[in-house]
């Protein structure tokens, strides 16, 4: 879903850059209010974590494999604003170092995966959590949110491609959303498995939606 350079026309990628710059500065401000000067090391190491997590290939049916994307995983563990920062940083590094996604399309990629994906996914997570409060609710909300985050990101991507005049809107929407509805199932299963593990061993590390900042503020026991 990383859009390369040349796919989007300037009247799409320039506004996308502006929107993601504005959104990012807002998320930076919100995250640094909660994390204060712990923000730099925490966000840096967590970006490296998401990046490393995307490298592990999980076996899927028939010899194929897929990897985690981690938007909702980051949001459930770190909170929405910190997750948006982390995913954007990962996208920037992928764009610069691995030429995964283009420089002019970086704004659109951040908009799709960080804001529509991670933030949008987190909103649905928080919404579901309001109705189911126990730990089973966390897992159900995580599953739905991570499926939705992939579909939302692909929806944004399809709309950008269609607005650039590459594809008719209907074809782009059906093709992208159908493919990513399948990919989203994998993402939902994987995110649930990882979150349920963290819930078992260190439930204090999960982001608490109602509280301010991150759950644990002090150095706690080692595994």
């Amino acid at each position: 879903m990383h859009l390369p350079d040349g796919f989007l026309t300037p009247h799409i990628w320039i506004p996308a850059w502006l929107a993601s710059l504005g959104g990012l500065s807002y998320c930076f401000r919100k995250a640094s209010l909660a994390l204060k000067d712990r923000m730099i090391p925490l966000m840096g190491v967590m970006s490296a974590f998401i990046f490393a997590a995307q490298m592990i290939n999980f076996p899927v049916a028939g010899g194929t494999s897929g990897h985690l994307l981690g938007g909702v995983l980051a949001a459930v563990l770190l909170g929405p604003y910190a997750a948006a920062v982390v995913i954007s940083v990962v996208l920037m590094v992928q764009c610069f170092i691995f030429q995964d996604g283009g420089l002019t399309a970086l704004g659109a990629n951040i908009l799709n995966m960080s804001f529509a994906g991670a933030l949008g996914g987190y909103m649905s997570y928080a919404f579901i959590r309001r109705f189911i409060k126990n730990s089973k609710g966390i897992l159900i909300a995580t599953a739905i949110a991570s499926w939705l985050s992939i579909v939302l990101a692909s929806l944004f991507c399809a709309m950008e491609l269609a607005c650039s005049g590459l594809l008719p809107l209907k074809a782009a929407l059906t093709a992208m959303v159908l493919v990513h509805a399948l990919i989203g199932i994998g993402e939902a299963v994987l995110t649930c498995l990882v979150v349920s593990f963290v819930l078992k061993v260190r439930p204090d590390l999960l982001y608490k939606p109602e509280g301010s900042g991150l759950a644990s503020n002090s150095q706690s026991h080692k595994l």
Partner: peptide, 21 residues
Amino acid sequence: HARALANMLGVLFVRAYERAE
């Protein structure tokens, strides 16, 4: 295998978080 790999990622998260602190 998928569960084992996912648990690995969970361990990695906890260790990364502690490393950040």
